[in-house]
Structures are given as C-alpha cells and as structure tokens.
C-alpha cells in the first residue's frame, strides 16, 4: 500500500493540519511504510469475528440529571488565545 503526495494532501486537509510541500514526500513514504505494517492484518480471515471497541464488557453508566457546574468563565478564558465580552474569538467564519 503506498500513498502519493496528492492523497497525503487530501488527508492533511481532512485533519486540518499543514504539511508543507517539502515534507510531503517524506510523510508519504512514512505513511506508506506504516500501511505496509498494518497490512499484515489482512493475512487473517476475520469473517464473522465481532468487532471489539472496548476491552471491558460494561454498559454505559447514566448520570442523574443535575446541574453540578458553576460559572468558571474567567478561569477558563484566562488560558484562551483571544476573547472579548466573554466570547472566544476566531478568524471570521466565511459563509
């Protein structure tokens, strides 16, 4: 399995992560090597094997519907890159 530059660019876009043109070839090669490793899974027939998402066979616990949190806005926003009037600021959302 090998990925080309174009595919890496597509994945990088999905992940919203800059991969510079200079890095693309090296990244494509690394990812291809990892996919080769991963391809060893194909050697086993897994037809009929139930997928395992969790190590424990537990069911989801349910919380009581109670308000337990208080306003900590100032505390939380002290670590924010940009805020104004209690809002988080980000570059304009277009559209």
């Amino acid at each position: 399995m090998s990925l080309d530059r174009l595919e890496v660019e597509k994945i990088a876009h999905l992940a919203r992560m800059q991969v510079s043109g200079a890095e693309l070839d090296a990244v494509a090669e690394d990812l291809s090597d990892i996919l080769d490793l991963v391809a060893q899974m194909d050697a086993v027939d897994t037809a009929g094997v139930a997928p395992m998402a969790h190590p424990l066979h537990m069911a989801q616990r349910l919380r009581e519907d109670k308000v337990t949190e208080t306003d900590q806005r100032d505390h939380f926003q002290a670590i924010a890159p940009a805020t104004e009037n209690g809002l988080y600021l980000v570059p304009k959302v277009i559209g």
């Binding site: 919380r63 308000v67 337990t68 949190e69 306003d71 806005r73 939380f76 209690g86 809002l87 988080y88």
Partner: peptide, 17 residues
C-alpha cells in the same frame, strides 16, 4: 456534563470544561 441548559445566559457562563 453537569452544566445548565437554561436558555439566554451570558456567553460561555454555562460552558464547563
């Protein structure tokens, strides 16, 4: 989460961690 769902609060005062 245990944050309130009440409508109309000041921005981000009902957004917990």
């Amino acid at each position: 989460s245990g944050a309130s769902t009440a409508f109309g609060a000041e921005p981000n005062t009902q957004a917990c961690n």
